[in-house]
Design a protein around this nucleic acid. Structure first.
Lengths: 176, 176
DNA sequence: ATATTAAATTACCGATCGGTACGAAATGTC
DNA sequence: GACATTTCGTACCGATCGGTAATTTAATAT
């Protein structure tokens, strides 16, 4: 997971992974079937170890402004995300993935958008989101802007610039 | 160029290109030196054949609203961009590029941001951009949002959704 | 028409990829 | 302790990569 995350799933071979992990290749194949099965397992681990944290932020009943600030800070500053997000790296190279991993990526993507939707609905009900746009497209927008910021982190862009961009992008959701 | 553009530079080998173009591999190497030289040449051709069109839109002295609409329509609807933008595909996989191509990508990126800056300055002077933000970061924002939309095109996302996202993202630049 | 040069292609190089056949070591069973 | 079974790793497979040596083809000069 660390290798896929800090570099890119497309740039790390199974040979390299076996070498770094001190595991023989047949062992890896016995445990995961093939590369697709292995990447899917890695993605599952990443989801429960990293992505779950984001979902928690969304489900915690904090203000819209507070939550957006948390998300902005997470995406543009969190040292854990220094090399970007493994999930979005996989999603960006979706066409290169095997069927199992690709399906899992799509599932997680849908889950994420749902989480953003639920968050927006909750904030609308609480009255601190103006709700001047449909929930669905706004959730997708939010999701894509976070993804953009994390992709920029992976490209080692300047943190200040990433934050500026994300701040501006998410300002349309705030009361002005 | 067509192969790199419709697929992805990382997914098309020189062997494959030679086969499709009906050119022997040594001929290609005689003409371009190595893969890096070839990709740089392709990128140059793409810049003058495709990117120049965008720069023209920006330098034409149209209204902010009109220009944004043109850009939105271009990025989310233009059939020429059906498979995304070759430049942004290269930029996304920058770490995989050779030194020549990488440098050219950075040059073009800087040129693009400059073009957006010049455009914003002109619209500020003309009075139809509120200029409530620094030119530099706003230009980067504009640039990245277009890049995001074109990347979504490459991933074959729904055109309506791409347009919605881009429309919302660029709405912060308009008079409200 | 022949000799010389330039151009282009065939056929190959070592490296690396994802994936596996097969023998060696460890474990369990009587 | 002898034998059956499962676990594991070495050493390999064919395919493909970027790149090139060597030979054939084509063009040109004499």
């Amino acid at each position: 997971m660390q290798a896929y995350w800090s570099e890119d799933p497309a740039d790390v071979s199974l040979n390299e992974i076996c070498k770094r992990a001190g595991v023989s290749k047949p062992s890896l194949y016995r445990g995961f079937g093939n590369e697709d099965g292995f990447m899917r397992a890695v993605l599952d681990r990443y989801a429960e170890q990293v992505l779950s944290g984001i979902f928690e932020v969304l489900s915690k009943q904090a203000t819209l402004d507070e939550t957006l600030d948390t998300l902005i800070n997470f995406a543009s500053r969190d040292p854990k995300m220094e090399t970007g997000c493994l999930f979005y790296k996989m999603r960006a190279g979706k066409h290169r993935l095997g069927p199992l991993t690709r399906q899992r990526v799509e599932e997680i993507d849908a889950t994420a958008v749902r989480a953003y939707e639920d968050f927006l609905v909750a904030r609308r009900d609480a009255g601190d989101w103006a709700a001047d746009r449909p929930v669905g497209s706004t959730a997708r927008y939010l999701s894509e802007q976070i993804a953009l910021a994390l992709t920029q982190r992976a490209a080692d862009q300047d943190k200040d610039q990433i934050q500026e961009t994300l701040e501006l992008a998410l300002s349309v959701l705030r009361r002005r």
